[in-house]
């Protein structure tokens, strides 16, 4: 097991450098520079003032030098200082927003797992039943609806019409004066819609996948064997089939991390959540190079980590993988 782990981690190193190189190149495709944002329609900003800002930010250095410097500092988890007017370290900004985005994404993943697996399994064990057909419709609609539109409809319905849930942000204004339970509910109620909606299309996809995986397993010999041993259908399904069907599902879940993180831009924008997706979007729009590089890399790094966790847990469950030499 240890040697498997080591081998697996070693394969990550070239990936990691590939990631930093690509994110660096992407950002330097662009013309323009953050100085211009400071000059935003300001009749009082002159050419000398701009030049001064350029020297200040050292944008005059050649590309490879900037990359090399950045990489060295990156290994020390120092992403540099943001180009925005607050000039804060990028890492500070990421640290502020990452927990929020991770919380929402982990909750979404859990929700997807907890809901998709049982309904996928159920519809696999009752193929072509009414529920199965309903699920199919749900899946296709879930795939096909533009999420921001759905989010806005949900906001109007649950928050404006019914007044059940708050509209935006993470905490109410009077949060500090609430009781402990009140605080908890306040926080949870702010999260309900964002988590639900960001889980929505993943839910559709994964339940479909679960159903397929389950049907596949049910065709296998050992299930037939289990049945012929006289085990009840429920036992067959939940003890034998489910466990084996889950394995590929976990991998898929790991692979869906990047799209969840990507989707957070949209949800954080709509629900006014101060998370990393929005941080990234504002960074992109103002060409805050260090910030965008930092988040791209951290995002990729998280995915790498997610895949590693998925693979390792897979290997723990299924010894063939370990011996198979990754």
């Amino acid at each position: 097991m240890t040697s498997y782990l080591i081998r697996r981690v070693l394969t990550l190193i070239p990936l990691f450098f590939g990631i930093t190189l690509i994110s660096f190149l992407v950002i330097h495709l662009a013309p323009g520079s953050p100085i211009d944002v400071l000059a935003d329609l300001n009749p009082k900003m002159t050419a000398e003032a701009k030049q001064r800002l350029i020297t200040y930010y050292r944008l005059d250095k050649p590309l490879h030098e900037r990359y090399w410097q950045w990489l060295r500092r990156f290994l020390a988890l120092d992403f540099g200082v943001s180009f925005s007017a607050d000039r804060r370290p990028v890492m500070d900004k990421i640290k502020e927003t990452l927990p929020i985005t991770i919380t929402i994404n982990v909750l979404s993943l859990l929700l997807i797992l907890l809901v998709a697996v049982p309904i996928g399994a159920y519809s696999a064990s009752h193929p072509y039943s009414t529920f199965d057909k309903f699920l199919t419709v749900f899946v296709y609609v879930g795939f096909a609806i533009p999420t921001f539109w759905l989010a806005l409809l949900a906001l109007i319905f649950f928050s404006v019409q019914l007044e059940w849930l708050p509209i935006s942000g993470l905490r109410s204004l009077d949060y500090a004066n609430l009781s402990l339970v009140g605080k908890l509910w306040d926080f949870v109620s702010h999260l309900i819609l964002p988590v639900l909606l960001s889980a929505f299309s993943g839910l559709a996809g994964l339940s479909r996948y679960m159903r397929g995986s389950m049907l596949e397993v049910m065709r296998q010999d050992y299930i037939t064997a289990a049945r012929s041993k006289g085990l009840s259908e429920a036992e067959v399904i939940y003890k034998h089939a489910l466990r084996n069907a889950l394995l590929p599902v976990v991998t898929i879940l790991g692979l869906s991390v990047p799209s969840l993180i990507g989707g957070s831009v949209i949800f954080e924008q709509i629900f006014g959540i101060p998370g990393m997706g929005r941080l990234f979007f504002t960074g992109v729009m103002s060409r805050d190079y260090p910030l965008v590089m930092g988040i791209l890399t951290i995002g990729a790094f998280l995915t790498l980590l997610g895949n590693l966790v998925a693979d390792v847990s897979y290997a723990v469950v299924d010894p063939r993988i370990r011996r198979g030499g990754g």
Binding site: I156, V160, E163, I167, S168, G169, Q269, I270, G272, R278
Partner: peptide, 18 residues
């Protein structure tokens, strides 16, 4: 000052009294 990046959401928040 609350930051709400989407105009439509901000308007809903105004309507809801936030």
């Amino acid at each position: 000052v609350r930051v709400i990046p989407d105009l439509a959401t901000m308007f809903l928040e105004l309507k809801a009294g936030g």
